[in-house]
Write a protein that binds this DNA or RNA. Structure first.
Lengths: 334, 334
DNA sequence: CTGAAAGCGCTTACAG
DNA sequence: CTGAAAGCGCTTACAG
């Protein structure tokens, strides 16, 4: 691997000049430039990125820390972030925290030491504000809300509205015995959805019925079982997210409970998979790609010194009606 | 952010000594060491990784290039690779090539320039040998076979055996009109599976029936449609992989074709999702975690100068019988 | 056991 | 427009 010094030697110029034609940071005599370019082409020279990072104190790396890409929601989010990062000329380092605050901190530490320019994180820390304050590089919080709205940049969907929409939909579909499977309440996303559910219940004169559930398949399977035992008359289930909804459908199918005739199910996220399941899932759609793209755009702007108009971006959700709920004949359910 | 020079100053030693206590590369007087450690602790000093990379010409980064983590098979593979990499003290940079050779080359180039220590890749290049030859850093090929077995390190499942097992199973289940949805033949994985299918067909006196299909949901949907039109009497479908199998099940369900009573379906991969679908998928299980772990272990060994006994590792596959096939009553199908 | 010095391969004021 | 020099923050022979 040739170095800039070697190119300089062959082109009869100084390394500084080679650097200038490489980066276009200063005017270079066209003759000289052509000579340098020729040598670069002939040798197949490619500048060492590490050396560049060190002298510029910037690596053009954006770190992205998510709970785990095993969750399709985060896979899709990560893809959107990666795509936008690359469009902006940044490399993406994807890190899975496995919901472990220690791993999360270790990754942040690693990224700082790698001269990462920015971090996008779905933190699992209860107090994420401290974490953000301590971070010397631009950071944006994904999917969840920093405890004080003003403390950090964040982009997420309107989970409260999502909780409302889902509940209202089940009510509209004739459900009278709705149970919500609540995600971990330490996450504002889960808390907001629950709040939306409770508010609608109150407005409609229904008693909130709740079961705790993690955001994964395994717990979804487990909690659906206990839910059915605890609430034998349930006629509508609000799953914690799509992945849990998939588990719900699985358990109901195994017990030969007809969906949506006996029990209707609504998910949350609208991951790609939700339309492919059988039956296709009614769910609350988050604008996943938009969230990821916006998060990456914001860090990139921040890195490049562009001020951001708002610290907090809350994107709208939408109800996506498919086959696990039936608006058509609400009277059938009476 | 303090530097090693600053720590040295405060501890009244040279930067070299600080480096020695940090890395344990040489004996240091216990007194001195304690003093240095104390300063490090008090200042919260963390060495800059970029500077270390530059002087050591090693970044402890392993690059992993896959078609796309949107495919759950690669998500699971990537998680296994990441876990093993971290266990060995390497960071993982995950890159999605989107099956685009140009992107693939761009990523390899980037990784080399970042002083990456090794690369794990599921290449989409037709001639991957050239690519491997040109790469100055240790590389292992994932999931697919280099054209000349000896040219590179590779780890993959026994796709030929997989093709055989799947076909034999459908025959055992009473299918007489089996259609194979073949993945892109430029990939040895797809080619080997097809070969297994054809060999079993010949042995059993069946006529091979084939439909081309990409390894994704969208094409799975499309090709299932055309398959049903082209082969109206089909009673067994060998999907290109699990993701395609999911599409097959989706289309059959939409057309109210009973599974497995009228058509039986076998997937390939045994991604986590395959057991959660309804009906649960019969499939050929690849040892996904083992493949990923082994690939990461091999690059790590290579980086650390440990010779590898074999260039090529082919791991066994297994038939996983679930609900989309029915071995129980083969006579029902006559 | 320890330090001064050179080096990793770039970039960037500074001077001309 | 161009080069010499210093610097980014580490590591590592080399000498003592």
């Amino acid at each position: 691997m040739a170095t800039i010094r070697e190119i300089a030697r062959q082109a009869h110029v100084s390394p500084a000049t080679v650097s200038r034609v490489l980066n276009g940071t200063a005017a270079v005599d066209p003759q000289t430039e052509a000579r340098v370019l020729k040598v670069i082409r002939e040798t197949g020279y490619r500048p060492n990125e590490v050396a560049r990072s060190l002298s510029k104190r910037s690596s053009r790396i954006i770190g992205c820390i998510v709970p785990t890409i095993a969750n399709p929601f985060f896979t899709e989010l990560a893809r959107a972030i990666e795509d936008e990062s690359f469009r902006r000329g940044y490399k993406l380092i994807l890190c899975n925290s496995d919901e472990d605050p220690a791993k999360e901190e270790a990754y942040i530490d690693m990224l700082e030491r790698m001269n990462a320019d920015g971090i996008i994180i779905t933190t699992t820390h209860e107090d994420m504000d401290a974490l953000i304050k301590a971070c010397p590089i631009p950071m944006v919080i994904l999917d969840r809300a920093p405890s004080q709205e003003t403390a950090a940049y964040s982009v997420r969907a309107d989970h409260y509205q999502g909780g409302r929409l889902a509940t209202e939909h089940l009510v509209d579909c004739g459900c009278q015995n709705i149970v919500m499977m609540c995600g971990p309440q330490k996450y504002t996303s889960a808390a907001k959805r629950l709040q939306g559910y409770r508010d609608v219940c109150r407005e409609k004169g229904l008693v909130p019925q709740e079961v705790d559930c993690d955001f994964d398949f395994a717990d979804g399977l487990l909690k659906t079982d206990s839910l059915l035992r605890q609430f034998p008359d349930v006629d509508g289930i609000l799953a914690a997210n799509d992945v849990v909804a998939l588990s719900v459908v699985k358990v109901l199918a195994a017990q030969k409970v007809p969906i949506p005739d006996q029990i209707q199910v609504v998910g949350f996220d609208n991951i790609y998979l939700s339309q492919l399941m059988t039956p296709a899932l009614t769910t609350i759609g988050q604008p996943i790609t938009a969230i990821g793209t916006m998060a990456a755009a914001i860090v990139a702007d921040l890195v490049e010194g562009q001020a951001q108009p708002q610290k907090t971006r809350v994107l709208p959700v939408e109800l996506v009606i498919r086959e696990t709920s039936c608006l058509q004949n609400p009277e059938d359910k009476q």
